[in-house]
């Protein structure tokens, strides 16, 4: 049995507990409980976050992890996250020195569904990530994505980005002429009389309103 299933690191923001690759979940729980008991007085009531690595937890496992921390220490649990949410590919690329002078600002990562055809009236896509359409989204078709929506074609149907509540999500289309746009809980509809735009545009939320801007070459958003 691997004795070292978790690792503690102190940072300016507080303590981070790393769950090591390859350790199974019961090992993590027992090692974590032991280490917390040993160092309870040392850490006091500091803020702690748990980094799960590439692991994905079920609700029960998440509960068990929280209970272990609260039972064995006075640490205040701030977050539990996996590296996937923290963009591992970008950071590893940075680590390799390929992108050293590049800020991570404007980088977004996550799984994506690529649809290489036109979505027609009555067709509905729900996807827990980004959705990329190489084709049109016709009126009467609907896409709901937890992430962003990119349409390399004309978007005339309904697009709902950030469908699980993420207001930083956006909708991009070569021709953005949707029946209705939704980003998280913000909804806007097309003006009643509007011509097809002649350039690519993107839609985003600002001050609880959906704004639309043209994509120009100089843009870095």
């Amino acid at each position: 049995m691997n004795k070292y299933a978790v690792e503690f690191k102190g940072t300016k923001e507080g303590v981070t507990i790393y769950c090591l690759e390859g350790a199974d979940f019961t090992e993590i729980l027992s090692d974590l409980a032991a280490k917390l008991r040993q160092r309870a007085s040392f850490f006091g009531d500091a803020e702690v976050s748990i980094d799960l690595g590439n692991r994905e937890l079920t609700e029960e496992e998440r509960e068990a992890l929280i209970t272990t921390v609260t039972k064995n220490s006075r640490l205040r649990l701030k977050s539990i996250h996996s590296s996937q949410e923290k963009a591992p590919a970008i950071t590893s690329a940075k680590r390799q020195g390929e992108m050293e002078d590049l800020s991570l600002d404007g980088f977004k990562e996550g799984r994506a569904l690529v649809i290489k055809r036109t979505l027609r009236s009555g067709q509905y896509i729900r996807y827990p990530g980004h959705v990329i359409v190489l084709g049109d989204v016709n009126p009467g078709a609907e896409i709901a994505a937890d992430g962003d929506i990119y349409v390399f074609g004309t978007l005339r149907g309904i697009a709902h980005a950030g469908a699980n509540g993420d207001r930083t999500a956006s909708v991009v289309a070569l021709r953005l002429a949707p029946t209705q746009l939704r980003i998280a809980d913000v909804i806007s509809r097309a003006p009643d009389h509007d011509d097809l735009p002649d350039q690519p545009e993107y839609a985003y939320v600002q001050d609880l309103r959906i704004l639309i801007a043209a994509i120009t070459a100089k843009q870095n958003t």
Binding site: R120, S121, N138, G140
Partner: peptide
């Protein structure tokens, strides 16, 4: 035209 689009999707 809207209905035709729906039909094309179903035929596909």
């Amino acid at each position: 035209v809207r209905d035709a689009d729906r039909i094309i999707g179903l035929l596909e």
